[in-house]
Amino acid sequence: MTQGVAPARKTTYREAVRAALREALQRDPRVLLMGEEVGAYGGSYACSLGLLEEFGPDRVRDTPLSESAFVGMGIGAAMGGLRPIVEIMTVNFSLLALDQLLNNAATLRHMSGGQVGVPLVVRMATGAGKQVAAQHSHSLENFYAHIPGLKVLAPATLEDARGMLWTALEDPDPVILFEHTMLYGLEGELAADAGPVPIDRAAVRRPGKDVTLVAYGGTVGKAMDAARALAEQRVDAEVIDLRTLRPLDDATLLASVAKTHRAVVVDEGWRTGGLAGEICARLAERAFYDLDAPLARVCTAEVPIPYAKHLEDAALPQVEGIVQAALGAVARHG
């Protein structure tokens, strides 16, 4: 779990995911990569480009468009001693495999009295922003974060894209990784020897004292931009990247709110029944007397994500909306 001291290199989120996949296939012969278009096509988001050539068709397996069967097969393979990485093209299609993930992956250990473990990693893209309309744009991370027995991760940085996969593979239980489609092109610097990172805690991406902005996955960058805009108005925002959506790291959230006394939760999921609501409930239950302002949420509008650019933008959480919600919180004095 060490952060490398080797010189940093320019890379992208996509390349970081690919480096993580390559490392996993190199390190452990039990690891297989399976899913739609992971082989010959190189991955729908090019994350596995070159891996079929490097590791061969027994380790990098293109599957039919049978989400339920290949996810269930991944579960069975994990029960049988392999360490499969199953890629589902997007979270929208994962609903075809929800039965397997909920009724089998998340349930078998408990239902068997502890006999059956499912050390499976499922990766999928999530989120909107590419004008691919309602059936390819939704953020349904909360569906999975609702389920006991699963661990749910949302890497938002190059370090996490590179480092979460190996830690997830070492976990004895099923782990679901959500990669936001708008992040694949994210550029930045990453230590040449960057390696595994913890998957059980949130991270403070920007310390601040006036208001806590809670975000994950694709909204972390927007929260950081909002914090910069707020700084120009002399509001010092703290940005928390949840990183792990289940189990939630309450301690980091509570410590932040104890300091800032205000929180705005940013979530690309819909507001009703979503993760933002869960976080607000936890803060209301455990940090009520620390709060100097009502909790606020910035979520996706309660509509199927539309195609037209201006409508898609209007549906999603944006920097300006986060800034306004934060200003609204700091304008109140407890």
Binding site: A69, V71, G72, G76, A77, G80, L82, P84, Q100, N104
Partner: peptide, 15 residues
């Protein structure tokens, strides 16, 4: 629901 699990167990044996 168990059918895909059987495929996975079989795959693990085969591999």
């Amino acid at each position: 629901g168990g059918i895909p699990l059987a495929l996975g167990l079989a795959l693990a044996d085969k591999v």
